Computed example of a mutant assay.
Amino acid sequence: ADRTNSGRVELEYNKDVDEALPGTSTTAIALTREVKPLPPALDVNVPSNYRFMFTSMLQRAEALEAHLLAMQGHISETYDLPKAAPVGVASQDDVVCYGRICCDSEGKINPASVLLEGSRRASNGARVPVDLKEARRFTLFPGQVVAVRGINSTGTKLVAKEVCEGVPAPQLTSTPAEMRNLAGAGPTRVWAAAGPFCPHEDLEYMPLKELLAEAAGADDVPDVVVLMGPFVDAGHPACKSGEMEMTDPESGHPYPVSFEELFSERVEQILCRYLLEPALRNTQVVLVPSVEDAHLFPVFPQAPMPAFSFKLLDDAEREAVSRRVTMMSNPCTFTVGKTVISINTNDILKHLAGDVAARHPAPAPNLFERLCRALLQQRSHYPLFPPPR
């Protein structure tokens, strides 16, 4: 099928960064291309041996409680707020209550249906309705951990005067010695593309081939290519019907394939073929799965995809390609050089936009800007709880 947007660049960031300085060491340039997870103390990526669907209700409750208490500590420390008051306890004075935003019904949240659920440690999980009539600005959604300043004179309703919606994590920094090692190395070029990588009319993966061909032929070859699923799109007509076929190159006859075989025969082989091209000999590839991938379990968080089999490559080719392919979990956070990249292939912004209560003085900032800010303030890839059905 004809695609009108083939090869279109949707967003480019820092395109005018200077090139590497003459005489820069190859070690410095290599460091800018290095793909690594965060240090162990900060690494929250799901491991490959992640056992999903084995989490008990108690473990889930403990995880929610731990996140609430951690966010309470971050907010209190950053804004130097007074000692927290238990949720649901009457007070004639201004108090600051910490808790998780909830909705008082099964429908979508709105300013009249907001509840604040306190921690089990300080409030025994008590909930209290929040009156937001006096609050000038807020962007609230279920699962969000906030601090509310207001008066709860009867113990049955918290009249909010101000809502603190969280605080971003401190930015990671590099030491002077690390920066000196990168001196003159020039920009790190990262290309990112999200699936599906084939149109509904066929299973030839032409968009993926065109992307990699564009990378190989670019004047500025990318150092890293980040590919986000779905790779085997569960919404593809052939996947939904189960009638997936490929053509034997020798006989020309079609033969049926499984989801896993389609990924191996198409995605893996296309990537391996292009990574062996001289132009891409230094390019690294990062693959992040999606819950829409038919060859994987539709759970979130998702473990990294299994490593490539490289069954059509000889030993030398396997060695050349395998060290440049990195499988990441969904969601994931990693570094390229000294740049931190965080990815979530779940459409969290769409989910948040469908269940949000907001008020802002005119001119109100863009909703999606506020939701992006909320993700950073909540220090979570998916702060919405419960998720949409």
Rank of each mutant, 00 (worst) to 15 (best):
T4Q: 12
N5P: 00
G7P: 06
V9Q: 06
L11E: 11
E12W: 08
K15C: 02
D16P: 00
D16I: 02
E19H: 11
T24E: 11
A28V: 03
T32P: 00
V35S: 04
L38N: 07
P39G: 05
A41I: 07
V44M: 06
V44C: 10
P47V: 12
T55E: 14
R60A: 12
A61D: 13
H67M: 03
L69M: 08
A70G: 12
S76T: 15
T78K: 07
D80I: 11
D80E: 07
K83A: 03
P86Q: 08
D93H: 11
V95I: 15
R100P: 01
C102D: 02
C103R: 12
E106F: 09
L115A: 06
L116N: 01
G125T: 00
V128T: 14
E134T: 07
L140M: 01
G143H: 03
V145Q: 06
V148C: 04
R149T: 14
S153K: 13
G155Q: 04
T156W: 03
E165P: 04
A169D: 15
T173D: 15
A177L: 11
E178H: 14
M179Y: 05
L182Y: 04
L182E: 01
P187M: 03
P187E: 06
T188H: 00
V190W: 00
A192Q: 11
A193F: 08
A194C: 13
A194Q: 13
P196Y: 07
P199D: 14
L208A: 05
L208E: 02
E214C: 10
G217N: 15
A218E: 02
D219G: 08
D220V: 11
P222R: 02
V226F: 03
G229T: 07
F231I: 00
V232F: 08
A234R: 13
K240P: 01
K240L: 09
E243N: 09
M246Q: 06
T247K: 09
E260C: 12
E261S: 10
E261R: 07
L262N: 09
L262Y: 09
E268T: 05
I270E: 05
L271G: 01
E277P: 00
P278N: 08
A279Y: 00
L280V: 11
V286C: 12
V286D: 06
V286I: 13
D293N: 12
V299K: 07
V299T: 03
F300E: 05
P301D: 07
A303Y: 09
P304A: 04
P304D: 08
M305W: 13
K311E: 08
V321T: 02
S322I: 05
R324F: 11
R324A: 13
M327W: 08
S329Q: 04
N330E: 03
C332N: 01
F334Q: 00
G337I: 03
K338L: 11
V340H: 03
I343G: 07
N346T: 07
D347I: 05
I348G: 01
L352N: 06
A353F: 04
A357C: 12
R359G: 06
P361H: 01
A364R: 09
P365V: 07
N366S: 02
N366A: 04
L367T: 01
F368M: 09
F368N: 03
R370K: 13
C372P: 00
A374M: 14
A374V: 08
R379G: 02
Y382T: 03
Y382F: 12
L384I: 05
F385Q: 07
P386Y: 10
P387H: 05
P388I: 05
